[in-house]
């Protein structure tokens, strides 16, 4: 059984999409050199975005029954245009997947092999909670990266989301 309700998962997923879009609106205004500018402790703004999207892609691939042996290089996107194309492709898959969820499905056990090839298994709902929480953790880092390159990060608090969407 999943350790989270479908109602909560949907709520978090909607918030996640809203917050990601708010950060993207600021991210896309940075100069291209700033996207791959190395920031101590944070890698770079571009690599944080790539990691966030690659994690979604990795899990969708595992849920689909395939097990990649490595994560792609998070530094591979040199321009906003390249990163945006990747973002659109991953999020289209993600949103299509979210639309298929129901109570029964989130309780199904997903089996996969981690990046070291070790077997693992967990209910789908727990995996989705991991992904949404992972997104929130890195949202904090993207915000720090934006501030470090002189941009004002947008407010992405859950309470702001609720006020704008209720």
């Amino acid at each position: 059984m999943a350790a989270i309700t479908l109602e909560l998962l949907r709520h978090y997923a909607a918030y996640d999409a809203w917050a990601r879009d708010r950060q993207w609106q600021v991210t896309k205004t940075v100069e291209e050199g700033e996207l791959i500018c190395a920031l101590q402790g944070l890698d770079s703004l571009g690599s944080k975005w790539a990691h966030l999207l690659d994690a979604i892609d990795l899990w969708l691939t595992r849920i689909g029954g395939r097990n990649p042996g490595a994560m792609p290089d998070p530094w591979r996107f040199a321009t906003i245009k390249e990163l945006e194309a990747h973002k659109s492709a991953v999020l289209a898959r993600w949103e299509a997947f979210l639309a298929t969820l129901d109570d029964e499905r989130i309780g199904h056990t997903i089996e996969w092999r981690n990046l070291k090839g070790e077997p693992a298994a967990m209910p789908l709902g727990n995996i989705l909670q991991q992904l949404l929480w992972h997104g929130q953790y890195h949202r904090g880092q993207i915000s720090s990266a934006l501030r470090a390159i002189g941009k004002q990060p947008p407010g992405t608090d859950f309470l702001i989301y609720l006020r704008e969407n209720q």
Partner: peptide, 10 residues
């Protein structure tokens, strides 16, 4: 969770 990411970066 948001600030955990920032503490980790620090």
């Amino acid at each position: 969770a948001y600030h955990r990411g920032q503490i980790a970066a620090c």
